[in-house]
Design a protein around this nucleic acid. Structure first.
Lengths: 121, 121
DNA sequence: TGACCTGGTCACCATATGGTGACTTCTTGT
DNA sequence: ACAAGAAGTCACCATATGGTGACCAGGTCA
């Protein structure tokens, strides 16, 4: 299949990518930053229910993977801005296709789920 | 954004979908079944490193969500075949786009990761 | 002299996740 | 009689994940 070949150091690309965007918060962060550059606390407010710790971890991984650029302005109080890189912007296209599918088919999934295990018998 | 609006019963579609395909095994199962219908033990061998329990759980969720069809042939010994539904086949298209992106950009991600935290100083 | 702001980190704890190996049921093969 | 094989399930246990709230620095406002 298209995910092969891969080595141990460089695992199957798609599993690696899904590990990133498949977690609780990465997609939300990417979506927020796709709209515009945001500061740490702005991101927190934008996403709403993410904890500092998780947002911090998520941003760090996205930065390490080169999807997000972190810029520190050594002012007082310090200002830190997060923006998508070119790579980060480029992943939004495949994600948009997936989001489109999700929007179109979510109803079918929910109904299938309900059919199998009805609400309250 | 495109993921709104959503209710509590029917969460944000894309998060819901990512919860499914973003887990350890679902994508592998979908990919295997996209090639051809397989029996339980065939799937195990195909994927290689999945446990019975996880494969069972994964298949059950995919079936509940209407992505996979489980057919039991009441023979002896029993034969159970798993196949993609139309819905299951339709999600392979957005996934193919994502897989393509992953293949094309995985190298960039790995290199970015290495740049940030070098192997052995 | 505090109290507050930003952008975090850290320790603690609860829950979720996932692997292992035993067990099941029925029938066929030796 | 006994093992084997299909398709799972179940209990047990270890690790991963993620939330909470305390804490940090430096400077500013009242």
């Amino acid at each position: 299949m298209s995910t092969e070949p891969f080595t141990f150091d460089q695992p199957c690309p798609i599993r690696d990518v899904l590990d990133r965007i498949g977690d609780q918060w990465s997609l939300l962060v990417l979506e927020a930053l796709a709209e515009k550059t945001l500061r740490f606390n702005e991101l927190m407010r934008e996403i709403g229910d993410v904890s500092k710790q998780m947002l911090s971890k998520t941003l760090k991984r996205l930065e390490q993977d080169g999807l997000v650029l972190r810029t520190l302005y050594p002012e007082v109080p310090p200002r830190v801005e997060y923006a998508l890189t070119d790579l980060g912007r480029s992943i939004m296209e495949p994600l948009a296709v997936l989001i489109e599918w999700a929007d179109a088919n979510h109803r079918a999934i929910v109904e299938s789920r309900r059919r199998v295990s009805p609400p309250h018998p």
